[in-house]
């Protein structure tokens, strides 16, 4: 079986596995399901109400039947009701998703805009002091947690400029683009800087590999200019690992950057998961975790397919 076919066949299997894991995980939470579902408000229920609710939610049935009903609900787009927000889980997720998506895009743009030229520059100056500088910056950048970068940015803003990043209620881009960008630019820089370091390292390493390949040497010996060799011949092939890395990172970011969202008080998907845990809103936790894992899997699948399209050796099943 070819790589792509195998990947496509296993995808639904893994997806079912993920749904089972999320379903079972939520049921492993100590205490009964009604308490898990209603949180502290469950204490106000009379025994009769509790029995009625247990029957209503089908919790008196075995796990297999419950899982089946939950799965059917998923296909209808019914992820349950969030107790904390008082509305369907899917609505809460879709309210927050645009922010997460926009933040992921902005961070990627920043990371690639810094990381790619830096990596190419370092590779073409291999062994020189400027290469060493880039490598040191990249290594330090990769070792600095995003929440440390975020806190430092807030500190520098408040001490240096007497200002704080715009917080408060989030404005979507289509309503107030300026306010939206002012809210997202610093979180995007925070996430983008850490990721730029990885992009720099991987693009430098890939460029070095490609630059010593025979076809690049041939292009050089045929008299192609240095610029043409780097940008036309070497870079397209060196981009393959960068595409993979960027795709995976984008998948991570779509899961919401919990820590950065907390620092900048942004209501993204990561915050939804965190709030769901802290407020014991298990329907929301179950739904949001599944949604994030689904996104993550889809992005990873697309990355793998893109990778195999870019590198024929994988398509032919060599790996």
């Amino acid at each position: 079986m070819g790589y792509v076919t195998r990947r496509l066949v296993t995808f639904p299997l893994v997806l079912i596995g993920v749904s089972i894991l999320v379903f079972v995980a939520i049921r492993l939470v100590p205490g009964d399901s009604i308490t898990a579902m209603l949180g502290t408000e469950a204490g106000l229920l009379t025994p009769q109400q509790r029995v009625a609710l247990t029957a209503y939610f089908g919790l008196d049935q075995n796990w297999l039947v419950q899982y089946w009903h939950w799965l059917l609900g998923l296909f209808r787009g019914d992820l349950g009701i969030s107790v904390a927000y008082g509305k369907p889980v899917l609505d809460v997720i879709f309210d927050r998703f645009p922010l997460t998506l926009e933040l992921a895009f902005l961070s990627m743009i920043i990371a690639l805009a810094i990381g790619l030229p830096a990596g190419v520059f370092a590779a073409t100056h291999n062994g020189r002091p400027s290469d060493l500088m880039v490598r040191i910056f990249a290594m330090v950048g990769q070792s600095t947690p995003s929440f440390v970068v975020g806190l430092l940015i807030i500190y520098m803003l408040s001490v240096g400029f007497g200002a704080l990043p715009t917080m408060g209620e989030f404005s979507p881009f289509w309503k107030d683009p300026l306010r939206n960008l002012s809210q997202l630019i610093f979180p995007a820089i925070t996430l983008g800087l850490a990721f730029a370091a990885s992009v720099t390292r991987i693009s430098r390493s890939a460029m070095l590999d490609v630059l010593s390949d025979d076809y690049v040497r041939t292009a050089r010996s045929k008299g192609a200019s240095a610029r043409s060799v780097i940008w036309r011949h070497a870079l397209p092939n060196a981009l393959i690992p960068v595409v993979t890395l960027s795709g995976m990172e984008f998948g991570y970011l779509l899961g919401g950057a919990v820590l950065v969202e907390k620092i900048y008080a942004l209501p993204g998907l990561g915050r939804v998961v965190l709030d769901a845990i802290l407020q014991r809103d298990y329907a929301l936790l179950q739904g949001s975790v599944l949604f994030i894992a689904f996104n993550f899997m889809v992005v990873n699948l697309l990355v793998d397919l893109a990778y195999s399209a870019l590198d024929p050796r994988i398509r032919l099943g060599e790996r």
Binding site: G17, V18, A25, A293
Partner: peptide
């Protein structure tokens, strides 16, 4: 390996948060 694929389907911090939600 499919079980490992399932675990890898979650971003790392999210999986860790899920475990914390269960165990406290």
């Amino acid at each position: 390996m499919r079980l490992m694929d399932v675990l890898l389907a979650f971003p790392a911090i999210l999986l860790a948060l899920l475990v914390v939600a269960i165990v406290g």
